[in-house]
């Protein structure tokens, strides 16, 4: 860790201005990701702008959506009554992440922004285009068990590690940001990027822009939902593959569905074609299997993550089964 300055402004504008003006400044919220990265020399901000004094912690029902403040804690959101009632899928996804201690520190904004867990990104002595553009992708020919099967490039095959993001993309959430040039709303599916030739840029957030909240519009997926995460140990491990599944059922028929995957791409991976296929189909294992096959179209695996080509669709099927059976 390098020596750094630390400020804790109480005004949102001051926080934004500081980061916008200073190339070496970064926001810090729960610190559960950023401090680790600093300790390892992966991120080296010279100024930390602690945003915890800003009034961004509320979870509120507003017209047509629920608004979750960027500083709401992962643990608090997961247990919030409104969330449990309206967005149980989000609650399940949050509870599948990290550990209770971490969830009690981690914020929604920080979770959206957390960096990949790629082994090569994490070791400053190994090549990584995301950490050090031009140094090469260590994972491409290396240990790539945890890596992407969708949307990767030959510059980067890392995945977005967040569970929460998978639920948020499935639920059509919108990220509210405020920056030096004013406020804007970014649909969740457009917030994170694919690596392409610039894997070092992992989101579309601009320098100095602060996430202030996430809006989740109203939807009918309040009961038949499931977040299924397959991982190497039962808790406190990142997903090999995870699936957020939500069904709106009419008896045993699917009116509409939402489906997204984690652990498979550089961004939370929404499966819209599979969703469209499911609409109007009977909620049977056969439909789920077909949807899963559609979902996997275009997947390409590497040496150590071939299993995801099978685990992916299997997990989709199981998540849909669980969702359909949820009471």
């Amino acid at each position: 860790m390098i020596p750094f300055q630390y400020v804790k402004p109480s005004k949102q504008k001051a926080a934004i201005d500081t980061v916008a003006k200073d190339d070496t400044a970064m926001f810090i919220a729960g610190g559960t990701n950023l401090v680790d990265l600093m300790k390892r020399g992966i991120m080296n901000p010279e100024k930390l702008v602690d945003i915890n004094k800003l009034p961004l912690r509320k979870i509120e029902k507003e017209d047509g959506h629920v608004r979750i403040g960027a500083l709401a804690l992962n643990g608090a959101v997961a247990e919030d009554k409104l969330i449990l009632e309206k967005h149980p899928l989000l609650s399940q996804a949050l509870n599948a992440g990290a550990s209770a201690q971490l969830r009690n520190m981690a914020t929604v904004g920080g979770n959206i922004m957390q960096r990949t867990r790629c082994n090569y990104f994490y070791d400053t002595n190994l090549p990584c285009n995301k950490r050090e553009p031009g140094s090469g992708c260590g994972a491409l020919q290396g240990f790539n068990r945890m890596h992407a099967i969708f949307g990767h490039s030959d510059k980067c095959i890392a995945v977005n590690p967040s569970d929460m993001n998978v639920a948020l993309v499935a639920l059509d959430a919108v990220v509210l940001v405020s920056g030096p040039k004013g406020d804007r709303r970014i649909p969740f599916a457009e917030f994170h990027r694919l690596p392409g030739d610039t894997p070092q840029i992992h989101t579309n957030l601009q320098k100095g822009e602060l996430i202030t909240a996430v809006d989740i519009p109203e939807h009918p997926y309040t009961k038949h939902v499931n977040y299924l995460k397959v991982r190497d140990r039962t808790s406190y491990a990142f997903a090999l593959v995870s699936v957020a599944a939500a069904l709106d059922l009419d008896g045993s028929n699917i009116k509409s569905a939402r489906l997204a995957m984690g652990g498979v791409a550089h961004k939370p991976w929404r499966l819209q074609e599979a969703e469209q296929f499911l609409a109007g189909k009977p909620a049977t294992e056969a439909s789920f299997r077909q949807a899963a096959e559609i979902a996997m179209r275009g997947a390409k695996a590497f040496e150590h993550n071939q299993f995801k080509l099978k685990l992916g669709p299997n997990t989709i099927v199981q998540a849909l089964k669980n969702a359909a059976a949820a009471v």
């Binding site: 082994n119 994490y122 070791d123 190994l126 020919q141 290396g142 491990a237």
Partner: peptide
């Protein structure tokens, strides 16, 4: 990772 001779799983997350 044999190319580098370096452990790539060296914390409790990995």
């Amino acid at each position: 990772d044999d190319r580098f001779g370096r452990y790539v799983t060296k914390d409790f997350a990995e």
